[in-house]
């Protein structure tokens, strides 16, 4: 699948926003009682709002005919994309309301806390729906697994959490160690999840590359020369040229570094520079995670579409007859 900017941004930002609001909702319960009266929740909500709005904005760039945007909710019954709009929009609205009540027009803390929880729940719902878009496509052999949902939501939550943590550090100049420790554990869990996902991706790739009969029953076939060695079909973004092992490593490396670095930063004593660095590493992590998620995904149709020098063929024959 060809990775495109708007999709990376849209899913990434939405996840970050979700993470921020989940942290906010949790803090509403566990933080010191003064927390809700301080300006901090307002900043967090504002951060979440900016993120979700950014995601929404990015999504419009993925939409190539905005004139038809008005029809987007027509298929709520079946389309996860309709549902994504139908859930991300309320999430955004709730985020906006959160900013309103905590920054501009304070209300009773109970109500505020409830609103944060509702927003976080809406955020989780939106994230889940978004992930379901990907996880429910049988043709996207790499994605059609619950791992997709877990990894996608997990990435958003962890990275959003890191951003929230960083904001707290910047605002309050001290680190919330509990939060930091929780996030490190979450990162660890996420790493395991990504490992599992890597295997799913590999299986999908092998399934296609080893020639699953080219989609035909019976005999095994392989793609014959297609008349070009350039990856064909700029018009079919669901397939992309297969990544080389090198490219895959080149994306995985930064991803791992970002994760480790983020963990290290979380454990370091909270200071503004550390927090800013953590924001950057988390963002980089999200970017690489998402890029790999799209770029390395194998679509069933790639068995017919990618050939040429990009995928040399190894004959099965081992000896000269």
């Amino acid at each position: 699948m060809r990775p495109t900017g708007p999709l990376l941004l849209m899913t990434g930002l939405q996840g970050l926003a979700g993470g921020v609001f989940v942290v906010l909702a949790i803090l509403g319960f566990v933080a010191a009682p003064g927390f809700l009266h301080s300006a901090t929740p307002g900043f967090l909500a504002l951060l979440g709002l900016v993120l979700v709005a950014g995601g929404g904005l990015a999504s419009t760039f993925h939409m190539h005919r905005r004139a038809a945007a008005k029809f987007i909710l027509r298929r709520l019954k079946s389309s996860w994309l309709s549902r994504e709009v139908a859930t991300t929009a309320p999430f955004g609205a709730a985020a906006a309301l959160s900013v309103l009540v905590s920054l501009v027009h304070p209300v009773a803390p109970g109500l505020e806390r409830g609103l944060f929880i509702a927003t976080a729940l809406l955020g989780l719902l939106a994230m889940w729906v978004t992930a379901m878009i990907y996880a429910t496509i049988p043709a996207m052999l790499s994605w059609r697994t619950p791992t997709t949902v877990a990894a996608m939501m997990g990435t958003g939550l962890v990275a959003g959490g890191v951003w929230a943590w960083a904001l707290l550090v910047v605002v309050s100049r001290t680190s919330d160690t509990g939060l930091a420790i929780a996030l490190v554990w979450a990162l660890l869990a996420l790493a395991v999840l990504k490992g599992v996902q890597g295997r799913v991706f590999r299986r999908a790739r092998v399934q296609v590359e080893s020639g699953q009969q080219m989609g035909m029953p019976g005999r095994r076939y392989r793609l014959a020369d297609s008349g070009t060695s350039r990856t064909p079909y700029r018009t079919q973004p669901q397939v992309w040229r297969p990544l080389t092992d090198e490219e895959r490593q080149r994306a995985r490396g930064p991803l791992a570094i970002a994760a480790v670095l983020t963990a290290v930063l979380l454990m370091a004593s909270g200071s503004s520079p550390v927090a800013v660095l953590a924001v950057v590493t988390a963002a980089a992590g999200v970017y690489y995670e998402r890029w790999l998620f799209f770029a390395d995904a194998t679509h069933s149709s790639s068995i017919w579409l990618t050939s040429g020098a990009a995928s040399p063929w190894e004959p099965t024959r081992k000896s000269v007859p």
Binding site: D225, G227, T228, S229, A309, P312, W313, E314, P315, R317, V320, P321
Partner: peptide
Amino acid sequence: HENPVFINPVLAQSLSLVDG
């Protein structure tokens, strides 16, 4: 728009050539 030279894998093997 491109034309590789097609060779039998047996020949390729005897000449130690690989695809592409």
